[in-house]
Design a binder for these strands. Structure first.
Lengths: 289, 289
DNA sequence: TGCATAAGTTCAGAGTTCCTGAATTTGGTA
DNA sequence: TACCAAATTCAGGAACTCTGAACTTATGCA
């Protein structure tokens, strides 16, 4: 169906005659007449009572006009979506590494409501490597990941933020300073097999006495910080995560040589989103300390 | 805009490739490709990322698909409206003579909800002659009027019902029978200048003694019946109206020679509604005693 | 890495649709 | 009754759309 014919129909209904409608639509009367006639043929109804002049809408014709208006409004909004604008428009499938999702998502959605009111988002959380693969295969448009292991060449990355790692322990365990912690206390190790876990392991390997003390592996940040807050042991995590979950007198200790992970927004370098990557990233930066 | 192209787009999005979509749409791959390309040109956006094969929807493409589905649903319902069915479909502008509207409208709408769920109605009340003219000039599709003065030849009529006229008075005024009423009591005359009023005048003229007693003219049925119920005087009205408004001990007296008015549904004989007149009328008959 | 294959795109020509302008019909009006 | 304006019909030409073949290119397998 040609929406143009519906537009003609609505116009005729508005002005009340074929002649003036044809005039306003910049077409000949005969073209308009044929257009309506072909529409009537397609729908197999009489839209107009042609026994009078000018032809009058039939009852069903009036209903069709009503429906047509609704349809044309849909068309207008569809076209409007495509109008170039600096606002982000579209349906985006985004990935967030699990550890950052909790912190980044709410403020992201908040600022998206402002800067991209017509955009729609679909989220997925997972490991950095999983998300990278999904971006590569087109299952995701973009993902917030860490660049710890270096990104594949096909991906382009925009830095979202850097998160320094810190030790965290209950004050009462810190009387001997870091050396006491390392020597005697239980270490809570977050997901040793993932990107962030390997970074943590790499750092801990520098601190010799580790092999002698006890290590507990956990895949839940909140649980780790709950244990640390209770004074059961210590951990090594990105500072924002420590800040998010510490509730009691937990002390943070910076590393001798600062270690940090970098969060980046990764997209397919040659993908359709590439020109919009900066706009997307701008919704993410400046949202965490 | 060609809705067919939108249908193709939605199909591609559903099956995930141009080739299988083209197959299912019974068209060649090249035709489909050109269709989408022309749609992209019309909207001036890239719906697909063609750097991969099969091409993938871009974020905005996904949004367009979403909008397109809504639009196509509108189209479907528009086409559905036109499907021949025995139910009454359309937007009808109907007239009801004022005196009958109050009684006929509620049950009419009730049965319309059943028999014509997709029809829309617009109502207008007025004098029989006014409504007839509006039907003649196409301002109304049909009207319930009285055929008292005979209808113009251009109108066709379906009988909706016949309403006998009765005298009505409070019991206490009836002790002398009709002759007492006619001689001494105030007569409430409903709208003497209209069709129904002239019928009433015609009937009253038969009863000689009228000129001597008092007459009150009123254009409100409910008010007349309120006065009659209070015992202030008597009236002559269609029986259903008397029944509707009498609340106290009001007695009805049939006329010596029965007088009645006939309600008909009138439409333009050559109009578009003519074939549906019976269907419309069937929603009106059998609805009053 | 390079080839084979399948998937899309491009192109030219044919078929179809759609529009224009003139001729014709027809409802409303003087 | 005749006229006028409005709508329809018609024929020719312009514009669009489809088909089938040739071409290009991403992907998968050796």
């Amino acid at each position: 169906m040609q929406t143009r014919a519906l537009r003609s129909l609505v116009k005729i209904s508005a002005v009340g005659s074929f002649a003036t409608a044809a005039d306003q639509l910049n077409m000949t009367l005969s073209a308009l007449s044929m257009q309506i006639k072909s529409l009537e043929g397609e729908l197999d109804v009489n839209l107009f009572d042609r026994s009078v002049r000018p032809p009058r809408l039939t009852p069903i014709g009036r209903s069709i006009v009503h429906e047509a208006k609704a349809l044309l409004q849909r068309e207008d909004s569809l076209v409007e979506l495509c109008r170039p604008s600096d606002a982000l428009v579209g349906h985006f499938r985004l990935g967030f590494i699990t550890t950052a999702a909790v912190r980044l998502l709410p403020p992201f959605l908040e600022s998206a409501k402002q800067s991209a009111p017509h955009a729609m988002f679909e989220f997925e959380t997972g490991l950095s490597s999983t998300l990278q693969n999904k971006v590569l295969t087109g299952q995701l448009d973009a993902a917030v990941v860490t660049d710890a292991d270096g990104l594949p060449g096909a991906l382009s990355a925009t830095v979202i933020g850097k998160e320094p790692f810190v030790f965290a322990a209950h004050q009462k365990l810190m009387t001997d300073g870091m050396s006491g912690l390392l020597a005697d206390q239980t270490f809570f190790h977050f997901m040793p097999n993932t990107g962030i876990g390997k970074l943590i392991a790499y750092e801990m390997a520098k601190h010799k006495r580790r092999d002698t003390a006890k290590t507990v592996v956990l895949d839940n940040l909140e649980a780790i910080m709950e244990c640390v807050t209770s004074g059961i042991g210590f951990t090594l995590l990105p500072e924002p995560d420590v800040d998010r979950y510490r509730t009691g007198p937990v002390q943070k200790v910076l590393l001798p040589r600062p270690l940090r992970r970098t969060l980046v927004l990764a997209t397919l370098r040659e993908g359709a989103l590439a020109p919009r990557e900066a706009a997307l990233a701008s919704l993410l930066v400046g949202q965490h300390s």
